[in-house]
């Protein structure tokens, strides 16, 4: 275990205080402890300087995905961002997520995500198949990767389509990496029978994704969002809407839904 000895005993944090309309960055000094993470520092500020500093957190073990924020401009979970990863004496800037409307300080209104989720066709197995399911490990390995998602929404935060181009409403809504991952988990489930391709193309607008991969870079669960979820879904959309030969190929070799 590495315990650093030469580091200074104090860290400096610049934390955004305020709401979406007005606010400012405030600077706090926090004593350093071995193995400390940014969330510990935020808690120290709460307990000692600012009891009303708003922050979401639950498990403090990178399992629930509540404490999402931007630390030095990087969308991260505060509970797994180690303080000793910063340069000694470096000022650590903590901001709320940019993509979602700010409620206060580090807490944003992420309810948009839940509304998007409701629109995805749920898991739909064949109801007449009442026998005990036989599913082999290799059939579900892909799906299991997607189901590691802890819904921290950091991928939604970093995705420029939502973050900067604000394609969140109306006819131009982009469902975002999180929900492409969820859809991939459903589409590739060996027992699912529903078809979500039309939704992906025409309502979730998978075409807005230009696979610049920032979602994969920030994912704390290290899900290969782009390579394993979004691109395979894009290819399935191509099969259905852009590629005449694919239909012939499918008829010859099978594929798609297991019929």
């Amino acid at each position: 275990m590495s315990e650093s000895h030469s580091r200074s005993k104090e860290a400096t944090l610049k934390v955004y205080r305020g709401d979406g309309a007005q606010g400012q960055f405030e600077t706090y000094k926090v004593p350093m402890e071995a193995g400390m993470v940014v969330l510990d520092a935020i808690h120290y500020i709460q307990a000692n300087y600012a009891p009303d500093l708003a922050v979401r957190w639950n498990c403090k073990a990178a399992k629930c995905g509540s404490c999402s924020a931007e630390v030095n401009g990087h969308p991260s979970l505060m509970c797994k961002t180690r303080m000793d990863h910063f340069e000694d004496g470096e000022e650590i800037v903590v901001q709320p997520m940019k993509t979602f409307p700010l409620i206060k300080d580090l807490v944003t209104d992420v309810s948009w995500n839940y509304r998007v989720n409701e629109k995805i066709k749920p898991f739909s197995p064949d109801e007449s198949d009442t026998k005990e399911w036989v599913i082999y490990q290799e059939d579900i390995e892909r799906v299991q990767e997607f189901r590691k998602c802890i819904e921290c929404f950091l991928c939604q935060d970093v995705c420029h389509v939502l973050r900067d181009h604000e394609k969140k409403d109306g006819n131009e809504q982009f469902m975002g990496p999180r929900f492409l991952v969820r859809t991939a988990g459903l589409e590739m489930h060996p027992k699912d029978t529903a078809d979500r391709l039309d939704y992906l193309k025409n309502e979730g607008h998978i075409g807005y994704c230009n696979i610049t991969k920032c979602c994969s870079e920030v994912c704390p669960e290290e899900i290969h969002i782009t390579d394993n979820a979004i691109i395979p879904l894009k290819e399935r959309v191509v099969d259905e809407y852009y590629d005449p030969l694919a239909k012939v190929f499918k008829n010859m070799f099978g594929g798609g839904k297991n019929k």
Partner: peptide
């Protein structure tokens, strides 16, 4: 006792 308002106030 706690200071601040009712807007997302963890102390309260």
């Amino acid at each position: 006792r706690v200071g601040g308002g009712k807007k997302f106030n963890p102390g309260w």
